[in-house]
Design a protein around this nucleic acid. Structure first.
Length: 782
DNA sequence: TGCATAACCGTTTTT
DNA sequence: CGGTTATGCA
């Protein structure tokens, strides 16, 4: 008996000990799935003597991968875990593809395009095909192509598929297939793969190159996959191929937490898994160790409304805990204020630290109000999401140089830097070069190298030659120098760093610092040891560095242990837990999103998202919603989210907070390519709107929510001049108070805990209200 | 050719 | 509202 097994419950142990053959672990929220996965890996190594080089573990975030590695190391008390193949699908496949690039006709220094690069290529090809970029918007086209790739639908299959073609025709985008084809060819020509290509090409490699297939099949004797409910068909097929030899595949997932169907993930993968293998062992982890009973009850009540879940009963031994606090505010700013005030209060009275608190929301745009209110109260916070460090302009510029040096075929990068800093190679010249490149079927770089053959003017020619010579100089240094040395030389030689240094504006200073930080990170990279093996191009060179950074997200650069409040979308919070959670913006059109209320499937995914946010909380859960908020600069009114209705009243503590004079009431397997492609164009209502004119100005008046205690319309109260909130810690029944909005009233009774006192006040004009003294401000009159 | 001001358009969610 | 692109001017 190994001591690492002693901390597991019976089911968890069962999942760890079943080492050979396919196993599916259905792991409810907070049921210890990471613990099971890491213990399982440790057990394979310690007990079954499996070589760490033969284990592959795929996760969805770098953070999860890192954590897993660290936990295995901790269990085993050695550094063997360093050799494990643990990483995201994308990063592991990128690593393999780099070693196998020659099989697919790519340079092993291929570039990985992020979304912006990819959209740039789309813009280019749409222009070159003389198509209207108002109709073929980069965003729309990109999503369409991405969906296709995630369903393993290549350009030819796309063009041939009747269903897809019909869909494109109906959307008035008949040239989509043509664009897809041109885009794919252009990326290939640029020696570049986008995110989806990392999956698609991995699939092609295994499918079309038997030697490669058998090599990796033999290598990966044990495969583990986290967050299995969020895999897409491409990932599914790759795993199927990789695991076919040993069939030691362990998948862990929770269908109730499937929230990435917009990215092509399909729950079908869970159902199909059991059909694809004989004797799939299924283990359900149903005991939750994370949350209070109240939180689990609410989560169960909510998810009950979804049809076709895998039956499971999530339960907990934990204490009942507090009720869920439902808070309605007048505006988004008040919502922010309420949250910040509450955090301050919790820190003061409940000894809660900043890092115990998360503010979670549906869309990134919601962060602003919270930022402002937190800053005002000097509460330190960090926002996850938003621009990754590597997507900042100045960083991308610098990186573009490095990309061109490593892979001169990378036209996107080349266009970005050819005239930055300004060296007299203008738009006309660039257009010309691209034109020549296309006409002669060579890369833009090749045109530049042979510029004198293409009849550029002498001045331009000279500028081009200088540029080419400089890049070639760096290229010749590649074999001798590591990534940092090259990057440093680039910064110096191009005057890029100097130029930023001379910009003394606030932004200029920040930009300069960012570039310095980039250089530091490159230096750090070259100084960190790494393992490399058989045929891998795992050097300290530029190529290895570049391959990593595009796949890093914003979260990967942030210290997860810092004592700060964390702000992020619910998607980004998947897998995390916090003692205190604010689930913000529970409003119709926001959550559920207006984009996702047209089909049952979409709505159920939104509900799963709600389930996810509820189950992030360990002890305290606040659900907030605002009556009105700014969107695109104009004020809109929102009704409370329909999901709130799904929570039984017994679990809720209802309050309103904040002030202001406003009223407060307020198996794809076997199916066609078309079937596999998810989503289509989504909301056709928007299309219809364009055709038939704007909808009636008045908001659709179907109330989807009726408050159990319909708040009577608040009678306006003008607060006494010089209204100053009193200290209400000793407030008692019988005292007369004034509320800024509800007016004068008498305290009927006091209840709630010492930390969260609630006064029931009978107001002269507005009747009885429950007031949470931690949030609302009352003036004691007598 | 490049920079300034003016329209314009858009928000789910992410590797 | 804020970021991006079209336009117009020097």
């Amino acid at each position: 008996m190994h001591d690492y097994l002693s901390g597991l419950n019976e089911r968890q142990r069962e999942a760890v000990l079943h080492c050979n053959g396919p196993i599916m672990i259905v792991a409810g929220a907070g049921s210890g799935k990471t613990k099971v996965l890491t213990t399982r890996i440790a057990h394979l190594m310690a007990h079954h003597k499996v070589d760490s080089f033969n284990i592959l573990a795929l996760t969805f975030t770098n953070k999860a991968a890192k954590e897993m590695k660290e936990r295995v190391e901790k269990i085993l008390h050695n550094t063997e875990a360093r050799n494990l193949y643990i990483g995201t699908f994308h990063s592991v496949f990128a690593r393999i593809l780099r070693a196998e690039a020659h099989n697919l006709g790519y340079p092993n220094s291929f570039t990985i395009y992020d979304t912006d690069d990819a959209k740039g290529v789309i813009k280019t090809v749409v222009n070159e095909l003389n198509l209207d970029d108002k109709i073929y918007k980069p965003n729309v086209v990109y999503n369409r192509i991405s969906s296709a790739k995630n369903a393993l639908v290549g350009p030819e299959e796309y063009a041939r598929d009747y269903g897809i073609q019909q869909e494109d025709l109906r959307a008035n985008r008949p040239a989509m297939a043509q664009i897809y084809d041109a885009y794919a060819k252009r990326c290939f020509k640029n020696g570049a793969m986008d995110f989806d290509d990392l999956l698609l090409n991995m699939y092609k490699l295994l499918k079309n190159h038997p030697d490669a297939l058998s090599k990796y099949q033999r290598k990966f004797k044990y495969i583990l996959i986290d967050e299995y409910q969020d895999t897409n068909p491409a990932q599914y097929e790759i795993i199927k191929l990789l695991g076919a030899m040993h069939e030691n595949i362990c998948v862990v997932g929770d269908d109730a937490q499937s929230i990435y169907s917009f990215r092509g993930a399909t729950i079908q993968n869970i159902l199909q898994f059991q059909k694809d293998y004989d004797d799939v062992k299924v283990v359900k982890l149903e005991q939750n160790y994370r949350s209070s009973q109240n939180i689990i009850s609410v989560a169960n009540e909510v998810i009950k409304n979804n049809k076709g879940q895998i039956p499971k009963n999530l339960w907990t031994d934990n204490a009942e805990g507090e009720k869920i606090k439902l808070v309605r505010t007048a505006s988004d700013n008040d919502e922010g204020k309420f949250v910040a005030d509450t955090i301050k209060e919790l820190k003061l009275r409940n000894h809660i630290s900043n890092k115990d608190v998360a503010i979670l929301y549906r869309t990134n745009a919601q962060s602003r109000a919270f930022e402002e209110s937190l800053r005002r109260l000097a509460i330190p916070y960090i926002i996850y999401g938003g621009l990754s460090f590597y997507q900042r302009k100045e960083v991308k510029d610098m990186v573009a140089y490095l990309r061109v040096i490593a892979n001169p075929k990378d036209e996107e990068a080349l266009k970005r830097i050819i005239n930055y800093p300004v060296r007299g190679i203008g738009k006309t010249t660039i257009d010309k070069a691209v034109l020549f490149a296309n006409a002669n079927n060579i890369s833009m770089w090749d045109v530049l190298v042979n510029a004198q053959q293409f009849g550029f003017k002498s001045g331009t020619l000279e500028a081009i030659d200088q540029f080419v010579t400089m890049i070639q100089m760096f290229q010749s240094e590649l074999p001798k120098r590591n990534a940092y040395e090259i990057a440093f030389a680039v910064g110096k030689n191009t005057n890029l760093v100097k130029e930023l240094f001379n910009d003394k504006s606030t932004e200029g200073v920040a930009r300069y610092e960012n570039v310095q930080e980039l250089l530091n990170s490159i230096k750090e990279f070259t100084e960190t040891p790494m393992n490399e093996e058989d045929g891998e191009v795992g050097d300290k060179g530029l190529g290895t560095y570049l391959q990593q950074i595009t796949l890093l997200t914003d979260a990967d650069n942030k210290d997860p242990d810092a004592d700060v409040v964390k702000l992020m979308t619910i998607h980004a919070a998947k897998g995390l837990e916090f003692p205190v959670v604010f689930a913000a913006g529970l409003e119709e059109t926001l959550f559920p999103s207006a984009m996702s209320i047209n089909t049952r499937e979409e709505l159920e995914e939104e509900r799963r998202l709600f389930y996810v946010v509820i189950t992030r909380a360990k002890q305290k859960l606040f659900i907030t919603h605002a009556n009105s908020r700014y969107r695109f600069g104009s004020l809109i009114q929102n009704e409370p989210s329909r999901f709130i209705e799904e929570i039984p009243n017994e679990f809720l503590d209802r309050t309103s907070a904040g002030g202001g004079p406003r009223n407060q009431t307020g198996s794809w397997g076997g199916g066609s390519a078309f079937d596999r492609m998810r989503g289509g164009y989504g909301n056709s209502a928007q299309e219809a709107e364009k055709q038939y004119g704007a909808p009636p100005a008045k908001k659709a008046a179907t109330p989807s929510y009726i408050a159990p205690k319909p708040a009577a319309k608040t009678v306006e109260h003008v607060p006494t001049k010089d209204f100053v909130p009193s200290d209400t810690t000793t407030l008692q029944a019988g005292q007369k108070v004034e509320h800024q909005k509800f007016g004068f009233g008498v305290v009927e009774k006091m209840e709630g805990s010492a930390h969260n006192p609630i006064a029931t006040v009978k107001f002269e004009l507005n009747g009885e209200k429950k007031i949470m003294l931690n949030y609302a401000k009352l003036r004691i009159v007598e």
